[in-house]
Simulated scan of single mutants.
Amino acid sequence: MNISETFKTTCSYCGVGCGVLIQKHSEKELKVEGDPTHPANKGLLCSKGMNLNYSLLNRSDRLFHPTIRKDRNSPPIKTDWETALQKVAQEFKRIIQEHGPDSVGFYVSGQLLTEEYYVVNKIAKGFIGTNNIDTNSRLCMSSAVVGYKM
């Protein structure tokens, strides 16, 4: 089996940030292993990380372009990024004007960099005026921490 490309990346499941090597053999065949040089996991992966290739290959539920609906019951229609972002901005503005800043919240990834957390917090707290922000790192890792302690 010939490896056409190898990519160093970070596992996307939790907030630990394990290093992963993804070996691309073909469009339909990937192999995932832990990066032995990465300080967070030194080549080891949990069961989720070891099966990352299945998530990467299953594209049945992925969007490859922005879509928009006329209303909740309409089918999604392909659109361009500018139109999609304008619609999102309009809806956020309408909801906040109608129900106040605490009517919206942010649930962000555990994989963000410190600078990205800073920007999202500034948008939520400083610009919109809500404290409704949490991260996957708290929810995802809380059960793992209890398991590790046991």
Score class of each variant (00 low, 15 high):
23 Q>N: 15
39 P>D: 09
47 S>T: 14
16 V>S: 06
60 S>N: 13
26 S>W: 11
75 P>H: 07
48 K>Q: 11
80 D>L: 04
48 K>W: 02
48 K>E: 05
55 S>N: 14
9 T>F: 06
48 K>G: 04
95 I>R: 13
35 D>K: 06
45 L>N: 04
48 K>M: 10
36 P>I: 10
15 G>L: 06
79 T>K: 02
40 A>N: 13
20 V>N: 02
34 G>Q: 02
87 K>N: 09
51 N>V: 02
34 G>Y: 02
92 F>M: 13
60 S>K: 14
18 C>L: 10
50 M>R: 14
38 H>D: 15
67 T>P: 00
82 E>G: 02
57 L>T: 09
35 D>G: 04
11 C>L: 04
56 L>Q: 07
34 G>R: 01
53 N>R: 07
7 F>L: 14
32 V>Y: 07
20 V>H: 02
54 Y>K: 15
95 I>Q: 09
31 K>C: 00
53 N>Y: 14
19 G>R: 01
67 T>H: 09
62 R>A: 11
27 E>P: 03
42 K>G: 07
46 C>Q: 02
81 W>C: 02
80 D>K: 08
72 R>L: 14
91 E>S: 10
68 I>K: 02
26 S>V: 08
58 N>V: 08
76 P>E: 05
36 P>V: 08
86 Q>S: 13
8 K>A: 11
16 V>F: 08
16 V>N: 05
65 H>G: 07
38 H>S: 13
47 S>Y: 09
66 P>G: 07
86 Q>Y: 00
48 K>C: 08
26 S>Y: 12
7 F>M: 13
48 K>T: 07
11 C>V: 04
63 L>K: 04
96 I>R: 05
32 V>T: 13
28 K>Q: 14
68 I>D: 00
68 I>V: 15
65 H>E: 14
25 H>M: 13
65 H>N: 12
7 F>K: 15
65 H>P: 00
68 I>C: 04
81 W>P: 01
53 N>K: 15
90 Q>T: 11
61 D>W: 01
20 V>D: 00
88 V>Y: 00
34 G>P: 02
30 L>E: 05
33 E>G: 00
34 G>L: 03
55 S>E: 10
75 P>K: 14
77 I>S: 05
64 F>P: 03
70 K>P: 01
60 S>T: 13
52 L>S: 08
50 M>Q: 15
45 L>I: 11
22 I>N: 01
10 T>E: 07
33 E>S: 13
44 L>C: 07
91 E>T: 10
7 F>E: 11
55 S>K: 13
28 K>N: 15
61 D>M: 10
91 E>H: 06
